[in-house]
Each structure stands twice: as C-alpha cells, then as structure tokens.
Amino acid sequence: MFDIIKYSLLGLMVLIFQWMLGDIFSIYGRTPSFLVIFIIYLGLTHSQLHAIWLGFLLGFISDALTGTHMMGITALALSTVGYLSGIFHGRIVRIPVIVQYLLYTGFLLVFFILTVMITLQDSQFATGNIVFLILLPRTLYTLAVLSGLFIVLRVGAE
C-alpha cells in the first residue's frame, strides 16, 4: 500500500515536472516524454499492475491538461507501455544490454505511434512528415534521456 502511494506521488511529480518544466528540454520543439520513461521504469522495477493503472491515470490527467482533442489517447498508450514493460519485470537483468535497449526503443515506439500517429491521422500532415519530423525525433530524444536515467538508476544492471 505504501508503495502504491509512493509511486503515485512520484508519478504526479513527474507529470507536474513534464507539464511545468518540460519545455526547458525542448530541442527544435521536440521534448522528451518523462511520463513514459517513468512508466517503463515502474513496469520493469516495481509492478506491472501499478504500471498499467498509474499509466492510465497519469495519461488521463496529462490529456486533460494538454487539451488534446482525443482525451484518453495518452491513457491508452501509457497503460499499454506499462503492460509491455511489466512483462519484463524481474527478468530485465537477465537480458543482454543491447536487447534491453531494443526493448526500450520498442516501448517508446508503441507509445509515440499511439499518441502521435493516431492524434495526427486526421491532420493535413503527410505520414512521412509525421514519422520523420515528429515521431522519430521524439522517440530518439526520449530514448537518449531514458538511457541516461537508467544508467544512473542502474535499471537492467545486475
């Protein structure tokens, strides 16, 4: 129970950080998603169920704050990523490092494909532009931040 409260509060802090200070990390308008990093971390190191539901809750609040016209899409994406990362809970240390980072890239792609591609599908942007100008830069940027944080936090290390 204590863990649920602890990680919920931590999640809210990450959300507030993303919301208030996310722009500081903006490079050419592309910002990393700290929320998805947190949910991946939670799924890998703590609990799959908590990752799913905290992903849902934080995603929902994030959608309400950003005013997106598809409220609920981030909730869907984060809970899916929570589930996927939770599959490797307790097992990630036994996986080779390169495969670990391939998995992280996969998680991030799932998240950004769901949020970016679906949200912008009815916009006037060509799919190629969305992929190369938004999806891939944000995925790579978030992966770089995730890598740095996971090395510091020793996620995936024995």
Partner: peptide, 14 residues
Amino acid sequence: INLVTAVGLSLLII
C-alpha cells in the same frame, strides 16, 4: 485483464 480494462476505459473516454 487489467490491460484490457484500462484500454477499454481509455477508448470509452476517447
């Protein structure tokens, strides 16, 4: 089951 429930709720919200 939890994932399906969360995804279902998300779709309901959308």
